[in-house]
Structures are given as structure tokens and as C-alpha cells.
Nucleic acid binder design. Structure first.
Length: 423
RNA sequence: GGAGAGAUGGCCGAGUCGGUCGAAGGCGCUCGCCUGCUAAGCGAGUGUGUGAGGAAACUUGCACCGAGGGUUCGAAUCCCUCUCUCUCCGCCA
């Protein structure tokens, strides 16, 4: 959520900036609701003031044993007027809030302007795609013929777009989770968390999934609860409502969670394999930082995620998302894309964003500077470190051998019971 | 699932029959004084949000005592609903 005062005072600039993201806010409705709210609020406050004064006088009169009936009668009508105005006010405030909650974040000045994914510039490309003396197979073929992935049986259990890992495949998934968590906790200083996988409506609203994107979420029947689409939601909400002392910043958290996405409207894309599933595992990185450091923190967060790919020896590149391709809450986003030999393309495996104070305002996450009055909103950041299913897919494809086996990269072997190959 | 208790400022904790309560007292913290150092002592200050005025210090309106609603001229205090926490019972991994 943007600060209403800021929007009001910089309306033209805000509109111009959001236009680069293809935003469709109804600014007339916004202005109207805002102005009416201000007018009504001013009157209410004035009336409440006179009521407060009168109440004090009534108390005084009663103490002196003087009759206060006249004053009380007078205040009865004031009270009625306040009540009526308050009803009005709530209506306008709700309008305003609905609009405000649906306005995306303002892109950082360094974000390239563009329409869609094709306009995302490549920031850097690391490593070299492996050369094969044969036609590399898709990870779904490799996985199914090794007996470590079975999408048919997963469909029997649930439906399309759910994974079933078996044997070394399940072990590989678990190994990667531990591998990633160990690096982030032991080397990068993140605190490990294991949050709820189901969250309430408020938490979803705080991080920006709601109110606009309810269709992408799985909702529980008879509960106002949702399956998390990413650990970002529960982990960011750890500090919802908190005022943190400055010394505690920056805070780093990591979490392994499954993620659930209904991916409404994505049918037909990536129908094979692990790339686009309704349920997948992810190790997430979340940071809370002071505003002046948040862009440095974004860079280091990105490096933390990159480290995993480097250790696994996977080729990847980093792209900067352009204004038209960024997510709703982000002020700036880097995507890491891993090389997928079967299709010969780089595929997203991590997304690292700085949300600035957009989520913090919604979730009311503040910090207090020593010796300074008042509080300030923190900046929140997060990134995948990494999407585990897609990492498995990349490993299978990049380390496949002519005989159909798959080499396990050295760094992962301790997590695979010393195994160096899946055959 | 059943029965009961509770939710107040950074923390502990008071709030009487609703009125001078944004909230006693203590702890903590900040500043000052004092003390050879430390400790103790003394004095002052010490919530958040939002609006107005001011360069600022600050002054001032409104709101906030788990959340929402109600009663009332007036609610931290009374009533209702919800949420959460704790205790006991049941059930269960």
C-alpha cells in the first residue's frame, strides 16, 4: 500500500509511474473518496471536541449538584449527528481503502521501463551450459524412466499438476532443502523458521496477495484461511504489528515450506514436468531492513540465492524485471533463471524483490531509531533461495548422462548419503 | 469438543459505585546533579497514529486500554459478539 498523503501530494508523478506497469486505478473515484473523507472527518472531529468539552462540564455540574439536563439534551443531538457522520465516514474510508489496497507499488528509479517479459534486460550470465554428445532429454522423461518421478500416479491421487517423487527423487528433493537451509543459516546468517502453511486473510492482505489475487490462491472451505503460495506470507507476517528497535535490523529469516498455487489462467503452459505445479517446495529468504540499506540488502539477498546455483554447478543468468513484468508489491525485482538443456532456455528459479515499505505499511511493521521520536516503516525483501522442484528439474537435465543416469553434483553428495549418481 | 480464568503503555501492575484516566505505582530507559571508579542516591523526562500551527524546540485537536458492535451527555470501566492466551476435562499425532 502506498501512503495516502504521498499519493495525494504527488498524484501526477504517481499516475505516470504506475502507468509504466499498466495500472488501471480509477483515480476519479480515489480523489472523490479522499476528499469526502477529509471533509467529513473534519466535521466529526469538531463535533467530538465539543462533546468532550461538554461532557467535562456536565461532570463538573453534577459534582456541584447542579442540574445538567439542558446540556445533556443538547449533547444528545450532537451525538446523533456524530453517529450519522461516522456511518458516512466508514463508507468512504472503506472505498478508499479498497482502492488503495489495489494500487501496485511504485517501481524504483533503477527499474527498466518495459511492457512485458521480453523487455527484461539480462544483468549477467554465469557459467556455461553443458555440452551433450546426445540429444538431452526433458527432466520428466529422465525422472520417469529412472522411476523417481511419477506424474501419472500423482494425478490419480489428486489431479493434474501435482508431483509424486519416489526413492532417490524424494531423497534428492529433501537433500536440496537441507543443503539450501544449511547454506543460508550457517553461511549467510539467516534464522531458520518453520511457519504455518495456512494463513488467514489479514496475512495475505499484508503481503499483497489479497485483495486482488484471490483467484490464484487455494482457499479452505468453511474457513477464512488460505494455503500459502510462498513462505513470504507467513514469514513476513512474523513481525506484523511490531515496532522493532533499530539495533535488531536487519533481520534475516529463511524457511522451507511447500507452496500452493492455483495458477488460474495458466493452463496450457509448461504442462510437462516439475516446472509449473499446484504444489511445490521452496526455500525462501526474507529480510527486514532499514530503508537506507534495503537496496544493498537486495543485492546480497540475490547473491545468497545465486550461491546455491554456483555450488550446484548450474549455469544461470540474472535478469532485472521491467516495470510491466514486476509483481504487484515489488519496487524492484531480479529473477534468476537457470539453464534448462532440453528446451534450451533459461527458466526462472528464483525471484528476489525489494518491497520497500509497501508491505510494511499494510502489515504495520515499524522500527524505532534510538534517540529519535516516533517510528518508521521498515523495508521488507524476499527471494527464493531456491525453488526446489525446479532445482531438481535443472539437476536432472544438466547432469544427465548418455546411459540415462544422472550425476549428483559434488556439493550435494553429503546430503545424498554419499551417492554420486542416480541410476 | 466441554468447564473456568484472563487480555491495560518497553515490561510488571493498579484502575474503586461509568466523569478531572492516555491512564496510579514499580521496573527499565534518557538527560542532569552528586559521588575518586563502580554501585547506590537525588531531580526531570519517557506511548503510538493522525490533523492544524511553527524553521525548530514545541503547542494544540482527534483517536487508540485484544478486535468489532451496543448502552450513555460521557466507557479502560456496563452489555453483546468475536479472536487470542492460560488452567482443568475429553480426544488425538
Amino acid at each position: 500500500m502506498l501512503e495516502i498523503k504521498f499519493v495525494r501530494q504527488n498524484l501526477a508523478a504517481v499516475q505516470q509511474s504506475l502507468a509504466t506497469r499498466g495500472d488501471k486505478t480509477d483515480w476519479t473515484a480515489f480523489n472523490q473518496a479522499d476528499q469526502q473523507r477529509t471533509t467529513i472527518l473534519a466535521e466529526i472531529e469538531q463535533l467530538r471536541h465539543s462533546r468532550n468539552v461538554a461532557s467535562e462540564q456536565i461532570a463538573q455540574l453534577k459534582r456541584e449538584g447542579v442540574d445538567a439536563e439542558q446540556k445533556m439534551a443538547e449533547m444528545r443531538s450532537v451525538g446523533d449527528r456524530i453517529k450519522a457522520l461516522e456511518k458516512d465516514l466508514i463508507e468512504h474510508e472503506e472505498n478508499l481503502k479498497t482502492i488503495l489496497l489495489s494500487i501496485p507499488n511504485i517501481p524504483h528509479a533503477s527499474v527498466p521501463v518495459g511492457q512485458n517479459a521480453e523487455d527484461n534486460p539480462v544483468v549477467k550470465t554465469i557459467g556455461h551450459p553443458p555440452a551433450f554428445g546426445f540429444e538431452p532429454k526433458g527432466h520428466w522423461d529422465i525422472g520417469e524412466s529412472l522411476g523417481i518421478l511419477d506424474f501419472g500416479r500423482a494425478a490419480q491421487i489428486t489431479g493434474a499438476r501435482f508431483p509424486l517423487y519416489l526413492g532417490a527423487g524424494a531423497r534428492l528433493e529433501r537433500a536440496l532443502i537441507n543443503f539450501m537451509l544449511d547454506i543460508h543459516t550457517l553461511e549467510h546468517g539467516y534464522t531458520e523458521t518453520l511457519p504455518p502453511f495456512i494463513v488467514n486473510r489479514q496475512s495475505m492482505t499484508n503481503t499483497g496477495q489479497l485483495p486482488k489475487f484471490e483467484a490464484d490462491l487455494f482457499k479452505l472451505e468453511n474457513w477464512d484461511y488460505f494455503l500459502i503460495p510462498t513462505a513470504e506470507v507467513p514469514v513476513t507476517n512474523i513481525h506484523a504489528g511490531d515496532t522493532l528497535p533499530e539495533e535488531r535490523l536487519p533481520l534475516y529469516y529463511t524457511a522451507y515450506t511447500p507452496c500452493f498455487r492455483s495458477e488460474a489462467g495458466s493452463y496450457g503452459k509448461d504442462t510437462r514436468g516439475l516446472i509449473r505445479q499446484h504444489q511445490f517446495n521452496k526455500v525462501e529468504l526474507v529480510k527486514f531492513a532499514a530503508p537506507e540499506t534495503s537496496y544493498d540488502e537486495l543485492e546480497s539477498l540475490l547473491h545468497n540465492a545465486e550461491t546455491i546455483l554456483e555450488r550446484l554447478g548450474l549455469a544461470y543468468r540474472v535478469i532485472a524485471l521491467c516495470t510491466g513484468d514486476m509483481g504487484f508489491s515489488a519496487a524492484k525485482t531480479y529473477d534468476i533463471e537457470v539453464w534448462m538443456p532440453a528446451q534450451g532456455v533459461y527458466r526462472e528459479i528464483s525471484s528476489c524483490s525489494n518491497f520497500e515499505d509497501f508491505q510494511a505499511r499494510r502489515a504495520n511493521i515499524r522500527f524505532k531509531r534510538k534517540g529519535q521520536k516516533g517510528t518508521q516503516l521498515v523495508h521488507t525483501l524476499n527471494g527464493s533461495g531456491l525453488a526446489v522442484g525446479r532445482t531438481v528439474a535443472a539437476l536432472l537435465e544438466n547432469y544427465q548422462q548418455a546411459d540415462g543416469s544422472v550425476i549428483i553434483p559434488e556439493a550435494l553428495r553429503p546430503y545424498m548419503g554419499g551417492k554420486d549418481r542416480i541410476a
